[in-house]
Simulated assay, not measured.
Amino acid sequence: MEDGITPRWLDEEQHQTWLALTVMMARLPAALDAQLQRDAQVSHFEYQVLARLSMAPERSLRMSVLAAFVEGSLPRLSQVVARLEKRGWIRRVPDPADGRFTLAILTDTGWETIVAIAPGHVNEVQRLVFDALTKAQQRQLRDIARRIVRATGVDDPCRNPSA
């Protein structure tokens, strides 16, 4: 090898697991996006932005914190938030605690929108993910996902510290 690293090739079982995982990683977001586009004319990314803000204290987060929550770059988030601002769902203001930062705030109209969208999205998540698994498999999936996220070296912003 040019870089001196000998590859650790996947065995057949690992290869099959990896293929299944990569297909799932591609198809699940696409299926969720399709449902949200069909039912609410929003993308899955836009939904995640609205949902994260709806769960934040005072429905407000710094853009940098929101970007980490939704796993998006600041430029991508800024474009999405601009679209959501045009719809009246979010507004941006300088952070009064530190004007170098910008807050994204979910408006009342945005709150009403996420409240209306959430049931259909949750039903689709139930159908695509949880209906196919036993309770034990759901716990295993959560634990496996957390281990993989930790292996990436990035803190999991979704992790509940009490869990």
Rank of each mutant, 00 (worst) to 15 (best):
R59Q: 15
A104G: 11
S78C: 14
S73H: 03
R142A: 09
T107Q: 00
A118V: 03
R8C: 11
R27L: 09
R38C: 02
A68W: 05
R8Y: 07
M24W: 12
P75I: 03
S43N: 02
W89D: 00
V23L: 11
E71F: 06
W9T: 09
M1S: 10
R76C: 05
A145T: 14
Q138D: 04
R8G: 03
I90P: 06
I5N: 07
A118I: 02
S60H: 03
I148E: 12
W89T: 00
R83Y: 07
D155H: 06
L77H: 05
E58W: 02
D143E: 12
V49C: 04
D156C: 04
V81C: 14
W9P: 08
A118M: 09
A116I: 00
W18I: 08
E112M: 04
K135M: 06
R91V: 12
H44G: 13
S43M: 01
Q37V: 02
L10N: 04
R87G: 01
A67R: 07
V42I: 14
S54N: 10
S60C: 13
V129Q: 01
A151L: 11
R38Q: 12
V129E: 01
Q14I: 04
E46M: 01
A68N: 08
R100E: 11
G99N: 15
A116N: 01
V42N: 00
I144S: 11
K86F: 14
G99C: 06
R150H: 11
D156H: 01
G88Q: 13
T17D: 07
L10R: 15
G4M: 02
W9C: 08
R52C: 13
S54A: 08
D33S: 04
K86E: 15
T109I: 12
M1G: 15
M55G: 11
F45Q: 15
Q140V: 06
R147V: 08
A26E: 14
T102K: 15
W9L: 15
Q140M: 05
